[in-house]
Design a protein around this nucleic acid. Structure first.
Length: 460
RNA sequence: GGCCGGAUGGCAGAGUGGUCAUGCAGCGGACUGCAACUCCGUUAACGCCGGUUCGAUUCCGACUCCGGCCUCCA
């Protein structure tokens, strides 16, 4: 029995799909005007794991995640770069995909782009206008009439009149109500635009998601997810648009992941305190980033720092060390570890508990190595297969341990040459030289590990 | 001001009405030429004040503090 925390109700609920055995999930993707930062990575990884586990439970999942490829910031950035919006967005989409594959994500089933859904967007706006949920203001822009939707605010527990009182927004003159938001925006000269009944222009941010999600998954679907900062106004507006246009309930389960923080502040573009995925991958193996995300539950805020990355690296090394040298078997009997792992995941995807089960499995595995190699092989296989649900432990253990951090320095050949020299010194009982080599490598961040089978190394 | 979330051992991070989280660090031991890995044992926590209860870190209420959203933002 899968339980999901639903933002709409503020509670964990038993998950029940609309059509038995099938799940439709839409996740808000990125606006592609810049490289992904760690906050984006958190959302992408969270929903990747959620999608993996939903499939693992046997559901036929359709996972759709959009790409916002037309927007004010894209236009502005393209102008600054003196390039077309299309060339900018194409570059950023390629970069995003590259980052994401490095982080170990599986790509969504479908990644619709806003620019590919112009007709659907226009049609939806027309419907809203016809039904009285939208109007064209004096500026020519088309707005959603928030006051016409009685349930406006239901996702965020807000009331329209209270929002008016606390509104800090500069109210645009052509809006009837401060909470009204743009559906269609008139193009300024030189801006990329599409023809519409209201003139050449481009869609507002929220309408594209309503149009893409309902066209890809139907008017009513199971799960809608996104980052914590999309709850309001984006998702509130999506509900208002979609339910007004289709006359049906829009989404059953709303899911939002937690923020990534830096120095106790949210990482965000507007604060400028963000680190890109590329920044981090220059220093750490990508799986370290993934482990950091997985080590806490997807809804909790996560603190990002060199220290938290380092701790993630050390923890991951323990998992990989257990797998080192282990042969895997073609089939194994699932133990209680699998039962407990799955139980944790079924409880609103509690990856923190699931990971703790992996560590308990590792202790059992390490114990079995000497006494019961067959049991160890079975446990190692079980570990790999559970970790795969989190997208972890997919690398060769030796490779990971040697490359958990990325540093300029000694080449593998140089390290091996020193190890060979040291092995000979040890054979000759020349421990002074042996220790000298250990210290020399240690000072360069290389740690040596002696065992009966020989000497291996790890980067610190 | 409104809405939402949080406060757990040295750090990170789960969870539970009464016996274990887990990882790192610490301490004692085994193993080891040294070191590491690994194993065994071990120390240590539930913001504050009330209430409910035989018993609360866990439920309820007040308080304090922190974060998020209310403006583009995963």
């Amino acid at each position: 029995m899968l339980k999901i925390y639903n933002t709409l109700s503020g509670k964990k609920e038993v998950f029940k799909p609309i059509v038995e055995g099938k799940v439709g999930m839409y996740v808000c993707g990125n606006t592609v005007y810049d490289f992904c930062h760690i906050g984006h990575a958190r959302a992408m990884i969270s929903f990747d794991i959620i999608s993996r586990f939903i499939r693992h439970l046997g559901y036929d999942l359709n996972y759709v995640r959009n790409i916002t490829d037309v927007d004010d910031k894209i236009i502005k950035r393209a102008q600054e770069n003196n390039e077309t919006t299309q060339s900018l967005t194409e570059r950023m989409i390629a970069a995003q995909q590259e980052d994401e594959l490095k982080l170990g994500n599986k790509m969504p089933d479908r990644e619709p782009k806003a620019t590919e859904f112009m007709q659907e967007i226009i049609t939806m706006i027309q419907t809203l206008v016809e039904k009285g949920f939208a109007y064209q203001g004096a500026s020519g822009d088309v707005y959603y009439r928030a006051t016409a939707f009685a349930e406006y605010g239901k996702l965020n527990n807000r009331k329209l009149d209270e929002m008016l009182a606390g509104a800090r927004i500069d109210v645009e003159a052509s809006k009837e109500h401060p909470a009204d938001f743009v559906l269609w925006k008139q193009a300024k000269s030189g801006e990329v635009s599409w023809e519409s009944p209201w003139g050449a222009g481009r869609p507002g941010w929220h309408i594209e998601c309503s149009a893409m999600s309902t066209n890809c998954l139907g008017s009513h679907f199971d799960i809608h997810g996104g980052g914590p900062d999309l709850k309001f106004p984006h998702h509130e507006n999506e509900i208002a648009q979609s339910e007004a246009a289709t006359g049906k309930e829009y989404v059953n389960y709303w899911m939002h992941c937690g923020a990534v923080r830096v120095n106790n502040e949210k990482m965000s573009k507007s604060l400028g305190n963000f680190f890109t995925v590329r920044d981090v991958l220059a220093k750490f193996n990508p799986e370290v980033v993934r482990y950091l995300m997985v080590s806490s539950q997807y809804r909790s805020a996560i603190d990002y720092s060199d220290q938290s990355l380092h701790e993630a690296k050390v923890a991951l090394e323990r998992l990989y060390t257990a797998l080192r040298g282990q042969t895997l078997v073609s089939s194994y009997e699932a133990t209680d570890f699998t039962v407990r792992f799955e139980a944790a995941m079924k409880d609103d995807f509690n990856t923190a508990v699931a990971v703790s089960v992996l560590f308990e499995l590792v202790r059992e595995l390490n114990k079995a190595k000497a006494e019961a190699p067959e049991k160890a092989a079975a446990l190692a296989t079980e570990l790999k297969s559970l970790a795969e649900l989190l997208g972890l432990l997919y690398q060769d253990p030796e490779y990971f341990l040697q490359n958990s951090t990325i540093v300029e320095g000694l080449s593998e050949e140089a390290i091996q040459a020193l190890i060979d020299e040291r092995t000979q010194a040890r054979k000759d009982k020349n421990f002074a030289r042996s220790d000298e080599i250990r210290d020399e490598l240690d000072s360069k961040g290389i740690e040596l590990l002696d065992s009966r089978e020989g000497t291996t190394w790890t980067r610190n």
